[in-house]
Nucleic acid binder design. Structure first.
Lengths: 189, 189, 189, 189
DNA sequence: TATGAATGAGCCTTCATTCAT
DNA sequence: GATGAATGAAGGCTCATTCAT
C-alpha cells in the first residue's frame, strides 16, 4: 500500500501543524493543516480529537525533542561549567537547526490553549535539566522556585539568541558565544 | 461639532482590549471588547477603523506608557550602574503594578498583526533607552545589532522576572533583586 | 453666510446621489452621498426622511427633467413624423448630454425600491408624451395598454442607442439616426 | 470520496437565488438564499466560494438556458424571416414560461458584479445567435458594432414585451405578435 | 437647523467539528 | 479507518437611522 501507515500520518499532521503554527500562529485552520499533511479534513480528528489536543500534543512533542537534544551525550561527570556549556550549546544549536520548530514552540508557549497539564508534562520532560539547574546553578539549592527562575532565564535568553541568529545566520558562532557569556556571567554560582 | 469623540470611550476601549488580550490573546472578539467597554459593537469602529488598528494602537500605547515610566526621573548624571539599576527597577515595578498591561504587551509583541510601522514607532519611544544601552552596555558601542541584542535580553529577563513576581507577589523585592544581579553580572561592560 | 441655502443643499444631495447611484448602484451608502454633497451624515435625513425617499425623489426628478427636455419646443402643429422625430432626438440628445443622469435612471428603474406611487408620478410627468403616443403611434388609439407598450419600447430603444453612443461617442449622429430608423419603421402607424 | 457534491443542492441554491434576485435584486442575502434552498448558511459556500461567484454562475446558467431554448429546432435552412421569427418566438415564450428567471436575468445584467469573464462566456453561448444576426439583420454585415446594436435591440424589445405579458398574461399572443411586428419592421434588411 | 457620534441589526465569510458514505 | 460535504456559531465590519449637542 502506497498510503503511509497510521504513525506516519500522525507525524505528518504534527509536521504540517508545526509549519503552519510557525507561520501564522495558533489560528492556523485545521483544514489547512490537514491539506498540508496530505489527509482529509476529518481524518485529522481521528488522530487528535480536538484542535486544542493537537496544539497541546504538538507543544509537548517539540519540547520533548528539545529536551532529548539537550540531554544526549550530557557529560554527567564533567564540571559545572562544562555541563552548563553543553546544555547551552545544544539548546542553541537545536534552535538554529530547527527554526520552524522553534518558532512554533514560541507561538505555543504564549498561547492560552496550552493546558496546565501539558505544561506539567513538559516540566517532566525537562526534569533532568531542572535537576541539574537546581544542583548547580540556582542560588539556593533547596529552592524549587529559584530553579524555575533560572530555567526560565535560560529559555528566554536562548530565545533572544536564536532570534538574532535567525536574523543573521552567518553570525551563529558569535551569538552563541555572546549569549553564553551573558548567561554564565549572570547565573554562575 | 455634534458630540465630539469621547476620550473616555477611547480609553475604555483600550482598557477593555488590554484585559481581553491579556486573557485570551489577540483573538479576543471585537464584540467582546465593545461589550466590556460598555459601548455598542459598531461604536468601536468609529474609534478604531479596524481590529488591527486597535491592536497596533494598543501596543503602542502600552509600550509608550512603559517607556515613560522608565524614563521618569532618569538620573542622567549618575554612573552606569545607577542608571542601569534605575531602568531595571522602573521596568520591573511597572510590570508588577500593571500585570494586565504587561501580559497584553507580551501577547501583542509576538503577534504578526503588529505592523512594521508600529514597531518603528515603539523603537522611537524607546530611543533614549536604546541610546543608553548602546553607549553603556553593549559590547561594541558602534554596533547596532549588539545593542539590539542587549535590549532584547533586558526585555526577556524582565519578562521572566515579572512572571515569577506574578506567581509570588510577596517576593517582589527578592525577584527584582535577583533578576538585576543576573542581568548586571551578565551584561555589565 | 457662505453656507448654501436649503434648496441648494437639497440639490447638492440629489446631485451627489446621481453620481454615486450611476457609479455603484442603489447600494451607494448615504454617508458617501452626504460626504460628496458636502454635508453631515444626519443632515441628509432632514431633507429626505429615508434612503428610499431619496431614491424615489431622485428617480422622479431625473425623469421629470427628461420629460421637460423632450417637451420643450414640441412642434404641436407639425406632422406625426416630425413630432416623433423631435421626441426621439431630444431623448437621445438629453441622454448623451447627461450620461450620469441616464445611468442613474437606468439603475433606479430596475430597482425594487422605486414605489408604485413614484412610477405613477413619473407617468404623470410623461402624460403629454403618452398622449401624443396614444394619438399618433399606438395601434389602437383607444388602448392605454398599447400606448404603454409603445412608450416602453421608445425608452428601451433609446437606452440601447445611448449605451452604444456611450461606447462610441464619436458616432452619435449615426446611432441617433439608426435608432430612429428602427423605431420609426417599427412603430409608425 | 465521502458524500459527493450534490447536483440537487447546487440546483436548489441556484433556484433559490433566482427567486430572491428576481424579487429583491442582487442585494439578496446569502443566508436568505441558503434558507430558501433548505441548506445551512455555510453549505452555500462549499458550492460557490463567493457570493459574486454565485451571482456570476447564476447569470451564466440562466443565459445558457435561454440560448438553448432559442436554438433548439432552429430552422437553419429556412429564410431570414422564418429564422428571425423562430428566435423571437422562442425568446418570448421562454420569458413567459420562466418569468422569475427572466426577472433575475434583468437584475443581473445591469449589475456591476457580473464580471467581464462571465459576459464573455455568455457571448460564447450566444455565438450562433449573434452570427445569425450579423449575417441576416445588421445593416452592415461586416460591422461587429452594428450586430451588437441589433442584438441589444432584440433583448430590449423582448424585455418590454415580456413585461407587458407579465402584466397581462392572457394577451401573450397579442404581445408576442405586436412585438415581433415592431422588431421585424424596424430591423429587417 | 446642522452635526456627526452612537446604535445594533445584518452581511459575507470562516472554521472546528460531525457524520453519511 | 478515511473521506469530505454539511453544519451553524461566531467573527469583523457596514450602514441606515437616531439623537445629544
Amino acid at each position: 500500500m502506497a498510503r503511509p501507515l497510521s504513525e506516519e500520518k500522525r507525524a505528518a499532521i504534527l509536521r504540517a501543524a508545526t509549519e503552519l503554527v510557525a507561520t501564522v500562529g495558533t489560528s492556523a485552520a485545521t483544514s489547512q493543516i490537514a491539506k498540508r499533511a496530505g489527509i482529509a479534513d476529518g481524518t485529522l480528528f481521528t488522530y487528535f480529537p480536538t484542535k486544542d489536543d493537537l496544539l497541546n500534543q504538538l507543544y509537548l512533542s517539540i519540547k520533548s525533542a528539545l529536551a532529548e537534544a539537550i540531554m544526549t551525550d550530557y557529560p554527567s561527570r564533567a564540571g559545572v561549567f562544562e555541563r552548563t556549556r553543553h546544555c547551552w550549546d545544544r539548546l542553541v544549536n537545536w534552535g538554529a537547526e530547527h527554526p520552524t520548530q522553534h518558532k512554533a514552540m514560541r507561538q505555543l508557549s504564549v498561547s492560552d490553549r496550552i493546558s496546565r497539564n501539558t505544561r506539567d508534562a513538559v516540566n517532566l520532560a525537562f526534569q533532568d535539566i531542572n535537576t541539574m539547574i537546581r544542583d548547580n546553578l540556582s542560588r539556593d539549592a533547596a529552592d524549587d522556585e529559584s530553579a524555575a527562575f533560572v530555567g526560565a532565564l535560560i529559555t528566554a535568553m536562548s530565545d533572544v539568541t536564536l532570534d538574532c541568529i535567525a536574523a543573521h545566520p552567518e553570525k551563529i558562532d558569535l551569538y552563541r558565544e555572546s549569549g553564553f557569556q551573558v548567561f554564565w556571567n549572570g547565573v554562575r554560582p
